[in-house]
Design a protein around this nucleic acid. Structure first.
Lengths: 147, 147
DNA sequence: ATAATTCCTATTATTTCCATAGGGATAATA
DNA sequence: TATTATCCCTATGGAAATAATAGGAATTAT
């Protein structure tokens, strides 16, 4: 499995921040709020936000009235960056280079890594956010038939 | 990490069988031989070969003079099949479907899975085997300069 | 001062990964 | 027929990674 729960939680939290940044530029949310909104264990999310901050993807404000906000626009944040920041560099498999025979297998892993990296690079928070909004709208429209 | 050691070992063993099938069609190798050749823990490889057999990728012969052989030509075995057989279906992340908000993230995972599946489908044992032979030859050629 | 927050470090529970172990079943061969 | 070399099957163990939980220190607004 390529990604852990951390990536899922990180993306969810960042999507919440992306949404908040729509309402007001530099809109921020508290950890508590994000954990509640997205049903993520509070203390676990805390660690994830720390990583995101360290990775420069979010900024934070301490104390009362504090919170987290995106430090770039959603369109400027790729999924790849998020993954790298919370999981470390994406690797198909821990490979220790060398070994003539395994070489060809590791090369294959590398090739696959490149392909994955491409997909990760081409998708941004903005993409995901827009998709989630569209999806929610389509759902609302569909529900009207049942009223 | 997408693949475990099992995939690496499985591919190595299968490449050994692919090589054996060059020398004589339906060329077989014993578990012991494969473990030695590729420096794979014997008892671990045993479990992996069992999975490959169950998945129909190799056939086996019991008793003295027994061993394993590919049940198709190397060109007919994709890396994807090998991975699926030894690791189970490739998944970016264990996803439990539904959940309106996570949906967009799971869709992204699906999209990535499709891309990976494509690469896995387009690469066969034959490809890897040919590459490994070429690599070995280039190495031998390069070494001649140092004699 | 108090309350609401982020920040920092440790600990624990669960699961997955990577093997190791022992013996049973089967088949060739001496 | 006894022996030997193999595949076959199931269980067990240790290590590492994952997913949390816990407690309190530091900061800031009210």
């Amino acid at each position: 499995m390529l990604f852990s729960k951390k990536t899922e939680y990180a993306l969810q939290a960042l999507l919440a921040l992306a949404s908040a940044s729509r309402d007001q530029p530099a809109g921020s949310l508290t950890l508590k709020k994000m954990a509640e909104m997205k049903k993520i264990p509070y203390k676990f999310l805390e660690q994830i936000m720390a990583a995101l901050k360290k990775g420069g993807l979010v900024s934070s404000q301490k104390g009362q009235k504090g919170g987290y906000a995106l430090s770039r626009t959603p369109a400027e944040v790729t999924v790849g960056e998020v993954v790298t920041v919370v999981e470390g560099p994406v690797s198909i498999r821990q490979s220790s280079r060398a070994a003539a025979d395994k070489e060809v297998i590791y090369r294959f892993y590398d090739q696959l890594s490149q392909t994955i990296a491409g997909v990760l690079r081409e998708n941004t928070l903005e993409n995901l956010y827009v998709q989630s909004v569209e999806l929610a709208e389509r759902r609302r429209a569909a529900e009207m038939y049942y009223i």
